[in-house]
């Protein structure tokens, strides 16, 4: 009996095994360990302590505020993102590349700068500061500021996930719909939307995860007022700086769970999109 012949140019099995081992090691040390550390630290003093930390009044207020911000931010960016995707992928106009660059810009701007720019406009010494003060409107150190900063940071997610798919699908189906008598809204709801629904959902999930987890931008505009302008990530920071590690890691674990659920959902969605491209029901 002869051993199976390996083509001479293929890597030796030991080399492949070595590479796979190295890759797993990198992934475990750099990615899995930090995640494990969060849960280990959170449970160090037992589950009841962790749950208590989450059920504490300020923590609950932070959770509530985070949910409110996400509930405002995500629909706004969903609408804007879908509109931008339609314009960019299905229509022709001059300056399209510039617009795409602008849409992606928030990704390459530091979150702290994202917070900073709104302070420059709405802060006490900002452009609109005196006017806002005169009319007793609070933007910075209040919920509107938190929402603005979060909108800026999560702004590209929806457009970015949907635009490539829409471009790839072209406008054949929309043109066919037009010749069959469909109006613009009918075409959107019946033809375009079903074709991108999985990508859209995936973009919304990512947008939501970032909106709930954003730290730098909201940190700048929040003012860290407990129970009022503290979101979950900011609450983690406060607890951590007060050496309440168990509490900090308990809330962090909750945020990490959100991240994990988002990842899992995204993987499932990609699976669904791959399988359901033809719509096999």
């Amino acid at each position: 009996m002869s051993a199976p012949v390996r083509p001479a140019h293929a890597d030796a099995p030991w080399a492949s095994a070595l590479l796979a081992g190295a890759a797993l090691l990198v992934a475990i040390v750099m990615l899995a360990l930090p995640l494990a550390a969060v849960f280990a630290e959170a449970l160090r003093r037992g589950l009841p302590v962790a749950i208590d930390a989450i059920m504490e009044e300020d923590a609950l207020a932070a959770i509530r505020l985070t949910l409110i911000i996400a509930a405002i931010t995500v629909p706004m960016n969903l609408m804007g993102g879908v509109a931008a995707a339609w314009a960019v992928a299905k229509c022709e106009f001059p300056g399209k590349r510039l617009l795409v660059t602008l849409i992606e810009l928030p990704f390459s701007v530091s979150p702290v700068i994202a917070g900073l720019i709104f302070v420059l406009i709405f802060g006490a010494k900002g452009w609109l500061g005196p006017w806002l003060q005169a009319h007793d409107i609070q933007v910075i150190f209040a919920v509107p500021g938190l929402v603005l900063a979060t909108v800026f940071v999560t702004f590209p997610f929806v457009a970015r996930t949907v635009i490539p798919l829409m471009q790839e699908q072209g406008r054949d189906e929309e043109e066919a719909a037009a010749t069959l008598g469909a109006s613009g809204p009918q075409t959107f709801w019946r033809v375009t939307l079903p074709n991108v629904k999985w990508a859209l959902l995936s973009g919304v999930l990512l947008c939501n995860a970032r909106a709930m987890g954003e730290f730098g931008a909201v940190s700048v505009v929040s003012g860290h007022i407990r129970g009022e302008t503290n979101t979950m990530p900011l609450h983690v920071e406060i607890l951590y700086n007060e050496y309440q590690f168990a509490g900090a890691f308990a809330v962090a674990a909750l945020l990490a769970l959100l991240g994990l659920v988002t990842l899992a959902a995204k993987t499932l969605l990609e699976h669904a999109a791959g399988r359901g491209a033809g719509g096999a029901a």
Binding site: A32, L234, L258, L263
Partner: peptide
């Protein structure tokens, strides 16, 4: 491994920060 790669995208930065510090 494929899913874990995206973890830094999905994990809030503050969480990553205290986890790495720990």
């Amino acid at each position: 491994l494929d899913s874990v790669i995206d973890l830094p995208f999905a994990l809030p930065t503050a969480v990553a920060g205290i986890a790495l510090t720990a």
